[in-house]
Design a protein around this nucleic acid. Structure first.
Lengths: 189, 189
DNA sequence: ACTATAGCGGAGGTACCCCTCCACTTCTAG
DNA sequence: CTAGAAGTGGAGGGGTACCTCCGCTATAGT
């Protein structure tokens, strides 16, 4: 959550120097993350400040625009997702791919910002998208090389398919898993 | 759009009697449909009235609550979708199913309300959901009976999968089609 | 301890949006 | 033609959100 520089994803916002300010900064980040998760990109900034227990002025000083706040949260999320790609590195090809995608689904299910982001074309999204692709493409290509995934589709197709399933509502988690599996069966060879 | 009673989907709102009032009513419905399509369920009622070229008061007289307006629009949409099931009746089983689903995707892509609706459980959604299921299930079962669709999944799984793909953002329509096809390959036998 | 200063927070202006209410306009039946 | 019923629309009250501004407070370096 507190950022660990990696893959060019550092937000364009710098953590303040003073200890008390840093506390507020982190509280804001956490509150924003929760709020964005629950209510999407449009969550009220005033409520975020309230949740973080700071004044609205403090929020605006740290993050002059909604975009700045969003980036700070969002880059953190994407980073975690990318890191998850390492965790599956030593599974067999197809399993590694599906495990990562499952994590993508489960992870992003509560954080729809990531999905909303897959679509827009603002600069920050491009950066984040590239990071996600950098993390996922090797898994996909490994599966293809092992003859486990069809070669007539792009990783982009796959990721969008999965992200769609993430966004969809399901009765329960079992159904989500089941449907994901069906869809992935279309990719498996 | 102007409602054609069918499958218990008549909205709980009645069209006014006077000619001028009826014109306004229809204009509101059209404007609301566009607005909901563009901005989702939360579109501003005042803007809808503006688009329809009527006063806000007129909107409220015809549709006392946002829900009323939404139902009126939404039931019309669902009806059209159900009607589309008839159009594919004489295609071969698998083709009939996929064609209908493709229409579902294309149709609902601009009208996300339908998808948002698949999830909530208010009474009206139940009604609409049932109508959609009544229209689609036969197509699915026919494909299953013909040995063209796997039998270990429910129509509900399928529809949610497809609706997820609908909601997802794609680079272009070609990609949308491609991804839909991949996902459906997971269902085909 | 002391002070310069980074940081704080919330009042308040602006802009929407929701919804109600009612003086006014338009339609239509007779 | 006409009168009453049906319908109109927008002003206005109550909310909430955005964002700025600035007098006050807590911190860090000496």
């Amino acid at each position: 959550m507190t950022q660990t520089p990696r893959s060019g994803l550092e937000a364009a916002v710098k953590r303040p120097q003073r200890a008390d300010a840093r506390r507020n900064f982190d509280a804001l980040l956490t509150a924003a993350r929760d709020a964005f998760a629950e209510q999407g990109t449009g969550a009220s900034l005033e409520e975020i400040a309230r949740r973080a227990g700071v004044g609205i002025g403090t929020l605006y000083r740290n993050f002059p625009t909604r975009q700045d706040l969003f980036e700070a949260v969002y880059f953190g999320e994407v980073e975690e997702l990318c890191a998850a790609a390492d965790d599956v590195a030593d599974l067999p090809p197809w399993e590694a791919l599906t495990t990562w995608l499952a994590r993508f689904v489960q992870y992003a299910a509560t954080k729809r910002a990531i999905i909303e982001a897959l679509n827009r074309d603002a600069a920050m999204f491009t950066t984040a998208r590239e990071a996600m692709y950098a993390a996922g493409t090797p898994l996909f290509e490994r599966a293809q090389a092992a003859g486990e995934a069809r070669t007539d589709i792009a990783f982009d197709d796959l990721l969008r398919m999965v992200s769609g399933l993430t966004a969809a509502g399901f009765v329960d988690d079992a159904q989500r898993q089941r449907v994901l599996k069906i869809a992935l069966d279309g990719v498996h060879t």
